Amino acid sequence: MLSFKLDMPRETLDDWGSPEDIGAATVEGPIKCAGKLLYGTFESAVSGGLYSATKGKYRVTYPFHEHATLLDGELAITDEATGETVLYGPGESWIIAKGATVLWDIRSDAIRKSYLATTVDL
């Protein structure tokens, strides 16, 4: 079992580079991304772990379905298909479908989330 709690120690994550290094496009930055894969591999149908990014904006078209919970910071996500923007704080979660294009607006100095991703279509 993997537990992600708001009061858990914040371990150091691996440098994942810029949004471009994870398949996204920086809109406002620079942004530094980091993460730690804790379940599966980047090639497996299901994977998960921790992710962080510094303040800024980036656009990404999701290559997988994702459920995530924000652990630290403040983040607004805009669904570019509908124009809907939702503001998230610690303890709040979302699901984004594979193929959706969203704009991430990281409003705090940094955010950290736990996530579970899958490429399996139901």
Score class of each variant (00 low, 15 high):
Met1Tyr: 06
Leu2Tyr: 11
Leu2Pro: 11
Ser3Pro: 03
Lys5Ala: 14
Leu6Asp: 06
Arg10Met: 07
Glu11Trp: 02
Asp14Tyr: 04
Gly17Pro: 03
Gly23Trp: 02
Val27Tyr: 02
Val27His: 04
Glu28Pro: 04
Glu28Trp: 04
Gly29Glu: 01
Ile31Asp: 00
Lys32Gln: 14
Glu43Cys: 02
Ala45Arg: 11
Ser47Asp: 10
Leu50Val: 01
Ser52Trp: 00
Ala53Arg: 04
Thr54Leu: 03
Lys55Trp: 01
Gly56Val: 04
Gly56Met: 03
Tyr58Val: 03
Phe64Tyr: 14
Phe64Leu: 05
Phe64Lys: 06
His65Glu: 08
His65Arg: 08
His65Tyr: 07
Thr69Phe: 07
Leu70Phe: 02
Leu70Val: 11
Leu71Trp: 03
Gly73Gln: 05
Glu74Pro: 00
Leu75Glu: 06
Ala76Phe: 01
Ala76Lys: 13
Ile77Ser: 06
Thr78Gly: 10
Asp79Asn: 15
Glu80Ile: 12
Gly91Val: 11
Gly91Glu: 10
Glu92Lys: 15
Ser93Tyr: 05
Trp94Pro: 00
Trp94Thr: 13
Ile95Arg: 10
Gly99Lys: 08
Gly99Met: 05
Val102Glu: 02
Trp104Ser: 10
Arg107Met: 12
Ala110His: 14
Ala110Leu: 09
Ile111Gly: 01
Arg112Asp: 06
Lys113Ala: 01
Lys113Gln: 07
Tyr115Phe: 15
Leu116Ser: 09
Leu116Glu: 07
Thr118Arg: 13
Thr119Glu: 07
Val120Lys: 15
Leu122Lys: 08
Leu122Trp: 05
